[in-house]
């Protein structure tokens, strides 16, 4: 039998062609009564919220009350995970920074970048080193 083809699926390389922002939904929770929500409430009424949604149209933003609790930001990602940040007693600019942090995140667990090897899918120009070729020493 001549050669057969093996069925696989090509793997995604996000950002090599199109870049898909991984955050798909951002929930903003506030409380009308708690003092820790003061910054959150002013964030919701300020021009920062429209600016956030203008800058990130690919994220759907949902605002809902969470009475008698601290204000919370909760981001949902394409990989199915979610990340929540408590923003009690934060100013509206700080909340904006937290929103940016969540929107720009990949959604995976935090990992150390230092000390990891960089792996490439492409073949090296020089080829793979072989122990059987070139400069074999006789012992």
């Amino acid at each position: 039998m001549p050669v057969q083809g093996i069925r696989t699926v090509a793997t995604n390389q996000n950002g090599l062609g199109a870049f898909i922002v991984q955050c798909k939904r951002l929930d903003l929770h506030y409380c009308d009564w708690y003092g820790s929500s003061r910054g959150m409430n002013s964030f919701l009424t300020s021009e920062l919220l429209p600016r956030l949604s203008r800058m990130h149209p690919q994220v759907s933003i949902h605002i809902s009350p969470r009475p008698n609790k601290h204000p919370v930001l909760r981001a949902h990602y394409i990989n199915g995970r979610e990340k929540a940040v408590c923003v009690r007693n934060l100013e509206k600019e700080q909340i904006m920074q937290k929103c940016e942090l969540l929107v720009q995140s990949q959604g995976g667990k935090n990992r150390k970048i230092r000390g990891r090897n960089v792996l490439s899918e492409n073949e090296s120009v020089r080829g793979i080193w072989s122990p059987f070729h070139g400069g074999i020493k006789d012992v």
Partner: peptide, 16 residues
């Protein structure tokens, strides 16, 4: 969206 995906064509062969 499609051509940017990575596929190693050399791994699709199955020789008998």
């Amino acid at each position: 969206h499609f051509m940017s995906r990575q596929l190693n064509i050399a791994s699709l062969f199955n020789f008998r």
